[in-house]
Design a protein around this nucleic acid. Structure first.
Lengths: 291, 291
DNA sequence: GGCACATTGGAACAAAAATTCTATATATAC
DNA sequence: GTATATATAGAATTTTTGTTCCAATGTGCC
């Protein structure tokens, strides 16, 4: 009779879980993911609560612990706890050190803190700065549009790309005006009267974006703009303009606010569509697919 | 009958204990000293064990808690625990309560608030969850690489796209493995031994991303991975894996944390390059260009 | 398609822990 | 010095929590 030993510290446990992960049953894999992704919760909560959070039954947690040679769940939990007491002094000190350190040599972790904090501030003020009526009007336009064409150059391309992706996931027809082969103008030719255009553009406003916006305006296609100022040259062309303020650290501007707004637009649109479809008695292509 | 409230966080509790210390009975003073001197033990141990360590009886601990308006000892213990985890459970719960209360018909503005808040929470915990050593190791690899190849499919494409963009702006050679024309594999062929690969992939991990990662590993090209769990199939292949937790609202996952991390990587790399160039006596292509 | 094996959920059980209660001790005021 | 009020210890109680066990379900193999 062999007598396997349980892991002695958290690092060892983590290693073993990772190693044996592939050979675990489905439920046990699910358990493993939860445990490693939420170690702090595991340290404190009870079996019942953890089981609920992880979407498994208490017995599964016990079995999991047993399969790693622990006598019971509690024994395994000790490792999660000791990890906290071992690491925490460092952790708290690190935060304090990083936060109070006034510039000096901004190492990477310091930068990370700064960015996270800057973006947090931006997100705090974002929802209050967006006029609910603008949001609704934008959604009205999107909802009516047969196809939504999305355009963003340079930095804004990321946002445009994400919005297009999200629209596909709520079953809204959408095209990304990506300028492949320098064909921005050509791509615009396939924009129909009953479509809508979203242009995302920040200072300095890329020429291509202005042109696309101008053409949409000219041809009478509904135009929505996400930009960084009401004085933006794009704003005056738009039927609805949504103004966001992005964080700036070391002259690098973020995208957090734009993406957050974009996400909201997509999902709000998805919710509307679901409602419309329900009302029409048709069945549901739900918004709830994983994205 | 007045209804006194217990302290809401550890700092408040500490303040009250200090303040009222003089007016406590002898045993309660002894208890107070022990609690404040060994907060970590208090977080984990049971009443019986703590009583023994403090040299008092279990009931004394209960009475102590009661005298500070807690319903019982366990309630007070929560404060010692939340202190360890830095994240305030009250806070998260409060928001969740608000969400469910106003739930019903989530109009667009409500959604915007929810997203902003969810992303804020994520950003709060992001910097603490990233191991500074991993960050530095990733930067080492990027710095040494002649060219950085960046790959992300579906949702992660947005992040990959942004990182590539940012690298260009700090004058780091970079290619986006974009799979145009279904040529992921072909694009990988131009990856050289002295380059580096960054793959961004979240559950469910896209097949293309796995393949790219596997190939990098096989060919001995340094591989960095941004993913959502240590158990991700990508993580085991990577030289450095950076794990981020993204917000999730209505089954839509955000990208805020990934982008924030990506931004940090790019700029930290830019700072390093500037330093290296200064050290080499050459002149500066500064990181400070608008991005 | 049916059998054997492994996995899982849930109820029943046992252990442990928090809390309450009461008799006793201690301090304080008169 | 006694009476009253308050504080304390330890046992009793109740609640919570971890664990075990068995039936049911799913899975792979012949």
């Amino acid at each position: 009779m062999t007598k396997p030993k349980p892991p002695q510290d958290f690092a060892e446990l983590e290693a073993r879980i990772t190693e044996e992960y592939a050979s675990l049953s489905r439920r046990l894999q699910q358990t493993a993911r939860f445990l490693l992704d939420h170690p702090q919760e595991v340290a404190f909560a009870t079996v019942a609560k953890l089981a609920e959070r992880a979407g498994v039954t208490p017995s599964t947690l016990i079995r999991f612990a047993n399969s790693f040679d622990f006598k019971g769940f509690s024994e395994m939990q000790q490792l999660f706890r000791s990890r906290l007491v071992d690491e925490l002094p460092n952790y708290a000190e690190r935060i304090r050190a990083v936060r109070t350190a006034t510039g000096e040599t901004p190492d990477s972790t310091q930068l990370l803190w700064e960015f996270a904090e800057a973006n947090r501030e931006v997100l705090e003020s974002l929802p209050g700065r967006i006029d609910p009526r603008d949001l609704e009007r934008a959604l009205d336009i999107f909802e009516r549009a047969e196809i939504v064409h999305v355009m963003g150059a340079r930095r804004s391309f990321v946002v445009a790309s994400y919005f297009t992706y999200a629209l596909h996931h709520i079953d809204k027809r959408a095209f990304l005006v990506n300028g492949l082969g320098g064909m921005h103008g050509e791509q615009m030719k396939s924009v129909g009267k009953r479509d809508a255009v979203l242009v995302i553009s920040f200072s300095p406003y890329a020429q291509e974006s202005r042109e696309i916006a101008a053409e949409a305006k000219e041809r009478g296609v509904p135009l929505i703009v996400i930009t960084d100022s009401n004085l933006s040259p794009l704003a005056r062309l738009a039927d609805v303009s949504l103004v966001v303020h992005e964080a700036e650290v070391k002259s690098f501007r973020g995208l957090t606010a734009s993406l957050c707004l974009t996400q909201t637009l997509a999902i709000a649109l998805g919710v509307r569509q679901d409602k419309a479809r329900d009302a029409a008695g048709k069945d549901d292509t739900s918004v709830s697919g994983q994205v």
